[in-house]
């Protein structure tokens, strides 16, 4: 039963990544879990369309992303979803913790179109093609959004550090 166990392990890893991505999209733990469950339910219903050998991770992320987009349309939420980080990351080094929180705060300031490519590539080290398929955008669009997003992130974090230094002095 090794193949079955292997599939279950992979799926478990993907669900963990889906949950992280759902948190980024929804800003709420309960809503994120609901989104993951809705994704899994849709995936079960569509299991016959999944081609063995194709990338299950991209397939699941794409279902989750599309589900989120249609949920938002239904709810007529016009505001751009902001990044939600429930609590500062677990790290015993306070300096490191502050640095990481700065990056997340900066990420929160980016528009969603730039934030999601950064998150998808960082989340599970997806390839550009996989992440572009997940977001349902052309590869070139994904490519430029990622570049602009990272550059904007660098400037925001740089600005945060400068402000902090001034405050300390």
């Amino acid at each position: 039963m090794e193949a079955r166990a292997q599939l279950e392990r992979r799926l478990s890893e993907y669900v963990t990544s889906l949950r992280r991505y759902a948190l980024v999209l929804t800003r709420d733990r309960d809503a994120a879990e609901d989104l993951v469950q809705e994704t899994l339910t849709k995936a079960i219903a569509a299991a016959d369309s999944w081609q063995p050998g194709s990338d299950m991770r991209v397939w699941l992320f794409r279902i989750l992303h599309n589900t989120h987009v249609s949920d938002r349309r239904r709810a007529r939420v016009r505001e751009d979803a902001k990044l939600m980080i429930p609590e500062p990351v677990e790290d015993t080094d306070p300096t490191r913790r502050i640095e990481l929180q700065q990056v997340l705060d900066a990420l929160e300031q980016l528009p969603e179109a730039q934030r999601l490519p950064i998150v998808l590539v960082a989340l599970k080290e997806m390839s550009y093609a996989e992440a572009a398929r997940t977001l349902d955008v052309p590869l070139g669009t994904f490519y430029s959004r990622l570049g602009r997003g990272r550059e904007a992130l660098r400037k925001i974090v740089g600005g945060m550090k400068t402000t902090k230094l001034k405050l300390v002095v």
């Binding site: 990351v89 640095e99 997340l104």
Partner: peptide, 11 residues
């Protein structure tokens, strides 16, 4: 940093 922070969320 982003990867590390995101990994910490779902833990």
């Amino acid at each position: 940093d982003v990867a590390y922070a995101l990994a910490s969320i779902s833990a």
